[in-house]
Design a protein around this nucleic acid. Structure first.
Lengths: 207, 207
DNA sequence: CCAATCTGACAGGACGTCCTGTCAGTTTGG
DNA sequence: CCAAACTGACAGGACGTCCTGTCAGATTGG
């Protein structure tokens, strides 16, 4: 039953399969960003990866699964960015929020394709939307946590804080998406400023 | 060249065509809400409308055009709701905002399908997204205008107010979308309250 | 070196949508 | 009443994706 495996090109079967999977995920991100979720096909992903359909089925059972893997990859990268930024940036929450916003915009400018997948195309597919929602919730919780530290007795109760965080993050996603597609014309600096004033507005109670 | 027209069923050719178009638009909204933009096809819309493909081409040149017409129809209804609510509700802006939020949630509960098209599926298609953005901008401007009246010297400058309004409205859209799909579990009352505190938070400066 | 395995390329069938065309049956105006 | 127009149903070709299968050439272990 088991296919007798051997090394090939100096790599084990597992390594080769993992490598092909990575190429497919990268290709999926590329196609998603360039063609949009609606025009993303197995055929297109395979062509972009320079692999045949056979290897697609080696890693994924369906197109949905591949798109999900692509979104997960981008999400993981963003989450990692957030964690490492928060770990290396100490001091008052305002500074941490600023560092986060700047780091995120760095990512957006460096890899607009990935940003597009995370922000725009994740809303374009029924399979991707739940994952998108999880990502938004994660950031919302983060915002709520920072706000609780920053404003203490001026902060919103937990439940309301999460809703505020969700609206804040989802709104930012739309803003970044509009910026990526050119529907909103603003400088990066204005956007960073706006993000910070929005953070304060969304998280501080009374005032 | 011109097809010689006559009345049929007591209606002129124009009336009949307009009637079929309405049926197709209604069917498009239904299919968009139930199947999602990705699985919306001409075939499906025609079946839902009880009309053959021939009549589809009578009104629309492509599937995109039909979906756009469906979104426009929903947008027009929402815009009408907003205008009439603002016209009939006088008094302080807080009350006007409250009335708006309540009226919108009434629509959402009465026609979840239309809400789903406006809020969720409008982000799922490349052709619909620009229209969605226009709708968001319209509401954002509305929010900015009300805020300018309500807070006067405490309001944000125009440019920043528009960004705040955009983030506010887009965030609300995500919130309503999550609520429609059951990803967020809250009562309607809590949501209305949250919308109002969010409005204040987003629009008032300093404080 | 040689048999076994891995790889890439391509063929071709199944399927659904898109789009045009035909045709019988119904309704209308004169 | 009848010719003309309208309507609904269906057929069928073009097209692209999905999915499996085949096959020659490259690479490996023994």
């Amino acid at each position: 039953m088991d296919a007798p495996t051997r090394s090939y090109g100096g790599k084990t079967a597992q390594e080769r399969a993992a490598e092909r999977r990575e190429r497919l995920v990268a290709a999926a991100i590329e196609v998603l960003a360039e063609q949009g979720a609606e025009h993303t096909t197995m055929t297109g992903i395979c062509a972009a990866a320079g692999l045949t359909e056979r290897y697609f089925y080696e890693s994924f059972a369906s197109l949905d699964e591949a798109m999900l893997a692509a979104l997960d990859s981008v999400c993981a990268e963003i989450a990692e960015l957030v964690v490492s930024t928060l770990q290396t940036t100490h001091g008052p929450p305002e500074g941490r929020v600023h560092a986060l916003v700047v780091a995120f915009f760095d990512l957006v400018e460096e890899s607009p394709g990935k940003a597009r997948v995370a922000v725009v195309e994740s809303a374009a597919n029924a399979v991707l939307r739940p994952r998108r929602h999880e990502l938004i919730q994660m950031f919302a919780q983060l915002v709520a946590d920072e706000a609780a530290v920053l404003y203490r007795d001026q902060a919103w109760p937990e439940e309301r804080a999460r809703i505020h965080g969700l609206v804040f993050i989802a709104g930012l996603a739309e803003l970044v998406g509009a910026w990526l597609t050119g529907a909103v014309e603003t400088t990066r600096e204005e956007l960073v400023d706006a993000c910070e004033s929005l953070f304060v507005a969304f998280t501080r109670r009374d005032g």
